[in-house]
Design a protein around this nucleic acid. Sequence first.
DNA 1: TGCCCAACTATGCGTTGTCCAGATGGGGAA
DNA 2: TTCCCCATCTGGACAACGCATAGTTGGGCA
Lengths: 208, 208
Amino acid sequence: MGKKISIAATADPVRAYHHGALRPALIAAAEEVIAERGIDGFSLRETARRAGVSPSAPAHHFGDSRGLLTAIATLAFTGLGDALEVADREDYPDRRSRILAQGVAYVRYALAHQARFDLMWRSPLLDKAAPGFAFASRRAYVVMEQAVLGDDSGGPFGPDHAPAVACWSMVHGFARLAMDDAFPVKSGDSLDDMLDDLLAGMLSHLDV
Amino acid sequence: MGKKISIAATADPVRAYHHGALRPALIAAAEEVIAERGIDGFSLRETARRAGVSPSAPAHHFGDSRGLLTAIATLAFTGLGDALEVADREDYPDRRSRILAQGVAYVRYALAHQARFDLMWRSPLLDKAAPGFAFASRRAYVVMEQAVLGDDSGGPFGPDHAPAVACWSMVHGFARLAMDDAFPVKSGDSLDDMLDDLLAGMLSHLDV
DNA sequence: TGCCCAACTATGCGTTGTCCAGATGGGGAA
DNA sequence: TTCCCCATCTGGACAACGCATAGTTGGGCA
């Protein structure tokens, strides 16, 4: 009680000088900003404001803007890999069903986390050498490849990975086009219903 | 000869006040900037500098940064549509060959004009209501759809357009992934050769 | 109690896009 | 020839940005 509590210059008048959990708070704030404003509207200052700290504070935890965005992209890839793994735990009557489920899970994840998904592929903004990034980004693909190729897999990007690349390309392209409003919405349809139908119709043309 | 020629404050000491062809010069400069720096490195000021005018000059021709980028994206879509049309002028032994040629032309265009292609899908940076944009972006898809569906086409995005969406998604996804360095380059392979092989292998899994 | 240092603040700098007032000069009418 | 209009540009100002750097805070430990 003898300690003098410093009043940090923040919107929270009683916050101690040390935030105590700033790294996760910044990640949460940054995800909020990109969800609202898109990647192009991302601002480190706005993120710091929302976390209730000064604009320079994120530098300690992430180095620079790229470091923070990379941390989020790594989480995003981890989330995608998790979603694909969850989808792969079901019992499927045949391999084709298993593969289509991967495709659906991929698109579902992308459409449910559009800002994250967008960030995941913004290579110029990311530090791909950061710890954990390469592992997370590769893992998502590996889960899918394993589902597509099964015992035929010669390891990631092995000699016979064309079916996995075909699956990946198709669902990745679909997710991107859907996110970029490339498919017109017919009046009377809800966007989700339309995309579900379109996705099912499209996947029927994947020959694996 | 009685006219006094004003010396504009530019790096070109003899340039008249009026540039005379500033709109195309700005487009060329902007394309140069995005080719060198990527979309995220684009700067209206750097573009103006390269065109030899002040930072405010582009505003007259394009309004704002968005206007200039939209003009370039419109040109990019026009280029893509042209490439798809050129590919479709060949005689193909069957419809499948015709469709695969569309896929190859799409990916080829994307990989040959990466900055343009990237910009084409940066919706938040573009004014989709600008004159000519909607037409150009739709035309590219329509050319491909016509090739995929032939007489079966019920008009753009008609009821049976799943094969066209499948084709589009696959090649679009492939182009995006290739551009984002998602496919590892094996040592000893040239990137172009590898992508050509991968593209052919992938397209063999498109069932249309 | 004093020191160390992780974690923060405050300040300054250069760059950015945009806004707005002013300057330029080509073209056309009187 | 002169004058006016206006398309097209310049220059300056402003707020916001990311980053660098010096300084401050306070918890933990000897």
